[in-house]
Design a protein around this nucleic acid. Structure first.
Lengths: 236, 236
DNA sequence: TCGCAAAAATGACAAATGTCATTTGTTGAC
DNA sequence: GTCAACAAATGACATTTGTCATTTTTGCGA
């Protein structure tokens, strides 16, 4: 963990209307605000590792994090991309298990850490928060089920196109309106898609050749979102 | 929906200690008991279909159900196998969405139906139940994430072995101690594994040749669970 | 700025898997 | 019991995808 900053209160956090806490009672927010600790993680730093015991929940106020699960043969599968306003580490905590995934900062990231007991206590007292939490879990479960189906049924070309669109939905564009607002290695992209790194690289080249995207190092520019959507072949 | 039976109360249900309701307050169980309706679905009947609006939650008192999600190309992916004591239909209800999967009885099945508003109300009042619900959702999410990783990284042979063990964990054996206690078509098995029906059939034949299983029509007998576990190549 | 190490890209090939066609077996309605 | 319809099994083959080796490019610290 990093040097503790105390740069902001929950009440003034610019994510306060985005997060799962948006409907929590004011008193509870105040309690969280008093007991939370703020930290910064540099790009590449690990917030928590698979196998560790969750001591609380992270609330991301700024930055980007990848959550990845180590497969049996040592290959990572990226389970979730986390952005400002999201919380992190709740799954294992609520299941009462150790972390089943590792969290690594994709860029410098600010998080608040809410201790386990406080989080549980507030969740017990605040049925609105509990409901938001259930909704969050249900939504994640839904996404996982769809991803599962696509992983089982769709060719890699379609899944890569879908992944690029998913990254766009999650992190949006840079100021130029075309460059994806995150830097991912080819390996990360492959681990999102669920394929070999070489396959991801090859298909990215094809997409570039087809004019759907442009590549400049780790920058990816979406030139033809409509074509990409067609390539993804999404019915729903 | 089927002819309404009123064969049992929640208080006398033999699943009352298994289900997510086990820690709910007695008063709430009583309310549920008064407002629930019991139904029977014959094998092959559909409890609900993808796209419909959830009107409540199903609680399975006896029988088996498959939950499957239709892929973009019309192929089913089986998302979950449901057994007595499980609840059904909560995901869409909590997300406030239409059903994203269809539920079909794998054999004659008894369910109780708990109306939407009652379920929500009790969930709001009963923080123990809400916690159990969050735990259930977290556990399902965990399973989905592991399945996702395996789908992305493991060959079909390993996934089929894992699937057979999963069926054993879910439904157990018949009285003989070797026959899986459920009848699934080869297509269902393929849709669980996430592969083509022919591939599933071929690999089942191989497993049989290797002596790990025996096949008699839709009966599957697990002859060498240890070998099957090795074939599944599970690290965790 | 150079040089090194890591990442990206590419090619050749092997292996895994899916598709299509055909045969065989099973089941249930009549 | 027979037939029709469906499920299961099998074979041949095409396609997709992964693996390994190699080259090229990039980014970064000395």
């Amino acid at each position: 963990m990093n040097s503790a900053l105390d740069n902001a209160t929950c009440q003034s956090c610019n994510q306060r209307f985005n997060s799962v806490f948006c409907k929590a009672h004011e008193d509870h927010i105040n309690q969280i605000n008093e007991q939370k600790s703020c930290n910064t993680f540099k790009k590449g730093q690990v917030l928590f590792s698979e196998g560790a015991r969750p001591q609380g929940v992270f609330c991301v106020s700024d930055g980007k994090v990848k959550l990845s699960h180590l497969g049996d043969d040592g290959k990572d599968q990226i389970i979730r991309l986390v952005k400002a306003g999201d919380i992190l580490g709740y799954r294992a905590l609520l299941s009462g298990e150790r972390y089943s995934a590792s969290a690594e900062a994709l860029e410098d990231t600010q998080v608040c850490f809410i201790p386990r007991d406080l989080f549980i206590k507030v969740l017990k007292l605040d049925s609105n928060l509990a409901f938001e939490m259930m909704k969050l879990l249900s939504d994640e479960l839904h996404k996982a089920e769809i991803k599962l189906t696509h992983l089982a049924q769709k060719p890699i070309r379609e899944r890569l196109a879908e992944t690029l669109l998913f990254i766009k939905e999650t992190y949006g564009y840079e100021a130029d309106g075309v460059t994806l607002n995150v830097r991912l290695s080819r390996e990360d992209i492959a681990n999102l898609v669920g394929t070999a790194t070489e396959s991801a690289i090859r298909l990215l080249s094809e997409f570039k050749k087809d004019g759907m995207i442009e590549l400049e190092g780790k920058k990816i520019k979406i030139m033809q979102p409509r074509e990409l959507l067609l390539t993804a072949n999404l019915q729903d």
